[in-house]
């Protein structure tokens, strides 16, 4: 063992343990992923965004809501790296704190949506029959709703704000996951190893939970990553229309809505948060694209 380098241990053709096989597989995936330059750019950007959001208080000197009406709409300078907004607040600071809001919303949606989709899809696929038809009919109904429009109506009914926006987006985001999980389950359910588990007396719940759901996870991860850009865009769109995060919260879409009137003179004020949305969304798209090539080569 000591004679082997770590790389050889990972790439061995004859793994000695389950753990070694799993790590080896992950390492081969990583090697493949690393060759895709665009995907690597996406990964790096996502990491930077996450770090910037998490460490926002350490990376900024100002407070995101401190106003300075005398110094409003100032161009970028040494004191205000990206200038100031319509109330004299530091744009760079608000941009980083805005990343917290956006990424927080994305994570909240995914945490709400992925388990629901996984549960509905695997149960429908494994149970089949009436349960399958009913669950899939409900899924299709929700799939046929226009996301942004419905989210707008929902938010209007609840109360404009981050949690309403998250709830509304989640409500329209879960159906694709259910369909995906069902499709995966259908290909797995008749496999020999499932029959073997069933012969040992495992209950249906255990089979779904322990043996089918884990196998759906990799295609689900790909889908989630690709979906994140859509969630970011919907959240920003809601903010732009005044139905998402509410001022003074530094959400990127809301920031654009508040300053779009200044685009003629101080074009950078609404443009900078716009570029942030673009960068975040593009990064997740590139990352998801690369992940799909590695984890899910069947689907082009």
């Amino acid at each position: 063992m000591t004679a082997l380098s770590r790389r050889e241990w990972l790439l061995t053709e004859a793994p000695e343990s389950r753990r070694q096989a799993a790590w080896g597989r992950a390492y081969r995936g990583w090697l493949q992923f690393r060759r895709n330059k665009l995907a690597m750019a996406g990964l790096v950007t996502v990491i930077v965004l996450v770090l910037a959001a998490v460490f926002a208080p350490l990376l900024t000197l100002q407070d995101p809501s401190t106003q300075d009406l005398a110094g409003r709409l100032a161009p970028p300078s040494a004191q205000h790296w990206l200038g100031t907004d319509e109330l004299g607040r530091d744009l760079y600071t608000r941009l980083l704190y805005g990343g917290r809001v956006t990424l927080g919303m994305v994570i909240a949606v995914v945490v709400l949506v992925a388990p629901v989709g996984l549960a509905v899809g695997t149960v429908a696929g494994y149970a089949g029959g009436l349960a399958d038809r009913v669950l899939m009919r409900v899924t299709d109904i929700f799939l046929a709703f226009p996301r942004l429009i419905l989210a707008l109506a929902f938010v209007a009914a609840l109360k404009p704000g981050v949690s309403s926006a998250v709830f509304a987006i989640a409500l329209t985001a879960w159906p694709p996951y259910a369909r995906l999980a069902r499709a995966e389950t259908l290909t797995i359910r008749n496999a020999d190893f499932i029959s073997a588990v069933r012969l040992t007396g495992a209950s249906a719940g255990r089979i779904v939970l322990r043996h089918i759901a884990p196998l759906c996870v990799s295609s689900l991860i790909v889908r989630v990553t690709l979906d994140m850009s859509g969630i970011i865009l919907t959240a920003a769109g809601l903010g732009f229309l005044g139905m998402g995060a509410q001022p003074p919260m530094p959400e990127w879409g809301t920031m654009i809505a508040a300053t779009r009137g200044f685009i003629l003179q101080q074009w950078w004020v609404p443009t900078i948060p716009g570029l942030a949305i673009f960068a975040a969304s593009l990064a997740f798209n590139l990352l998801g694209d690369g992940l799909r090539d590695v984890l899910d080569p069947k689907r082009g």
Binding site: G253, G274, L275
Partner: peptide
């Protein structure tokens, strides 16, 4: 084409609209 279409799916349509107007 790949970059063009990934960018198209990533840029918020309202940002593009504002920039185009500008």
């Amino acid at each position: 084409v790949r970059v063009l279409s990934l960018a198209g799916q990533s840029i918020p349509v309202f940002v593009l609209g504002l920039l185009a107007l500008l």
